[in-house]
Write a protein that binds this DNA or RNA. Structure first.
Length: 327
DNA sequence: GCGTATGATTCAAA
DNA sequence: TTTGAATCATACGC
C-alpha cells in the first residue's frame, strides 16, 4: 500500500461528521468497475459530490474505490513524467501554430489562407474549400477549448473536494503539508494526462483536416478567361521586360482575382514558355498588341487626345519578336 | 485514350 | 529572394 492509499484509508478513523446519509453509496461502489480513464469527467465529479454527502464509513469506502479506480492504476506511470514532456511541447506548439490554442488571432485562418494559396485556384474557386477548412478548424478549436475548460474546472473541483476530505481527516490523524501537496500533484498529473490525450486528439484532427485540404493542392484549375487576358495584356505590353514589380503583381492579382504568388507563377511559366517557343506565341503576341493599341486609341479618343497613341513598349511584335531581357 | 495546355512545385543559380 | 528550368499533375479538346 503506498502513501496515497494509506492516506485515504485513514478516513476510516473519522467519526461524528455531521453529514446526512444522502445518496446511494452503492452507486459509487459500482464505479469500481469504471477503471477506464475515458469515463466521463462529469460522472467522476458526481461521484465525488455523492461521497461528500455520505456517512463517513461509506465515504471511506467510496473514496477508496474511486481512488483505486482512477488514480492508483495510473499514478506509477504518471509519476515518472516529471520533466516537461517534449511530446506535450510539440503538441502545444502545433496547436498554437494551427491557431487552435492561444489567442484567436486568425492563426487558423492564416494557416488556411496559406494552404489555400498553396492549393491555388482563384479565390472564387478556392473560397468554398477555404471557408470549409476555416469552419472545420473553428469547430475543432471550439471543441478543444470547451473540453479544456471542462477538464480544468473538473480538476479544480476535484482538488477542492479531496482537500476538504483531507482537512476532515486531519482532525484524527496528522497530515503533513507534504502529503497534501503530493496528493494535489497526483491529481494534477492525472488531469494533465487527460489534457494530453485531448491535445493529441485535437492535433490528429487538425492533421487529418489539413492533409485532406492539401490533398487538393495539385488540383489545377484554369484561371478564367478574363484573368488570362489581363495577364497576357500585361505580358505582351511589357515584352521587353516582362518582370512586373511587386506593386504591379498585386494590382494584377487584384484584377484577376488570384494571389500574388499565382501571378508570379504565371509570369514565370509564361516567360519560360514564350522564350522556348517564340514562334508559337507570335500570333498571340500580335493579337494582344492590336488589342492594346485599340484600347489605347479608345482611351485617347475618349480623352480627346488623338495624337498620343500610348501603346506600351511592345509595338515590335510584328516581324522580329522581342527577346526577353535576361536580368 | 492521347496530345497539348497550363498552373503548381521543386531545385539550383544569381 | 527571385528567377529559370525541369517536371508533375490535371484540365481540356479531339
Amino acid at each position: 500500500m503506498d502513501d496515497q492509499t494509506r492516506m485515504l484509508a485513514g478516513l476510516g478513523g473519522l467519526g461524528g461528521l455531521s453529514q446526512a446519509d444522502v445518496g446511494d453509496p452503492d452507486s459509487v461502489r459500482k464505479q469500481q468497475s469504471l477503471g477506464q480513464p475515458q469515463q466521463d469527467i462529469g460522472d467522476i465529479l458526481q461521484q465525488i459530490m455523492a461521497i461528500t454527502d455520505e456517512s463517513l464509513d461509506e465515504a471511506q469506502a467510496s473514496m477508496e474505490a474511486l481512488f483505486d479506480a482512477y488514480f492508483i492504476s495510473s499514478v506509477r506511470g504518471v509519476q515518472e513524467e516529471d520533466p516537461p514532456d517534449p511530446q506535450i511541447m510539440r503538441l502545444d506548439n502545433m496547436l498554437l501554430a494551427e491557431g487552435v490554442s492561444g489567442p484567436e488571432k486568425g492563426g487558423g485562418s492564416a494557416a488556411a489562407a496559406a494552404a489555400a494559396a498553396a492549393a491555388g485556384g482563384s479565390p472564387n474557386d478556392g473560397s468554398i474549400e477555404h471557408s470549409d477548412y476555416r469552419a472545420k478548424l473553428a469547430q475543432i478549436r471550439q471543441i478543444y477549448h470547451s473540453e479544456l475548460e471542462k477538464y480544468e474546472q473538473a480538476c479544480s473541483e476535484f482538488t477542492n473536494h479531496v482537500m476538504n476530505l483531507l482537512r476532515e481527516q486531519s482532525r484524527t490523524r496528522p497530515i503533513s503539508p507534504k502529503e497534501i501537496e503530493r496528493m494535489v500533484a497526483i491529481i494534477h498529473r492525472k488531469f494533465s494526462s487527460i489534457q494530453m490525450q485531448l491535445k493529441q486528439s485535437t492535433c490528429e484532427a487538425v492533421m487529418i483536416l489539413r492533409s485532406r485540404f492539401l490533398d487538393a493542392r495539385r488540383k489545377r484549375r484554369n484561371f478564367n478567361k478574363q484573368a488570362t487576358e489581363v495577364l497576357n495584356e500585361y505580358f505582351y505590353s511589357h515584352l521587353s521586360n516582362p518582370y512586373p514589380s511587386e506593386e504591379a503583381k498585386e494590382e494584377l492579382a487584384k484584377k484577376c482575382g488570384i494571389t500574388v504568388s499565382q501571378v508570379s507563377n504565371w509570369f514565370g511559366n509564361k516567360r519560360i514558355r514564350y522564350k522556348k517557343n517564340i514562334g508559337k506565341f507570335q500570333e498571340e503576341a500580335n493579337l494582344y498588341a492590336v488589342k492594346t493599341a485599340v484600347d489605347a486609341a479608345n482611351v485617347s479618343a475618349q480623352a480627346s487626345q488623338a495624337n498620343s497613341p500610348a501603346t506600351p513598349n511592345s509595338g515590335k511584335v510584328h516581324g522580329s519578336p522581342p527577346v526577353i531581357s535576361s536580368r
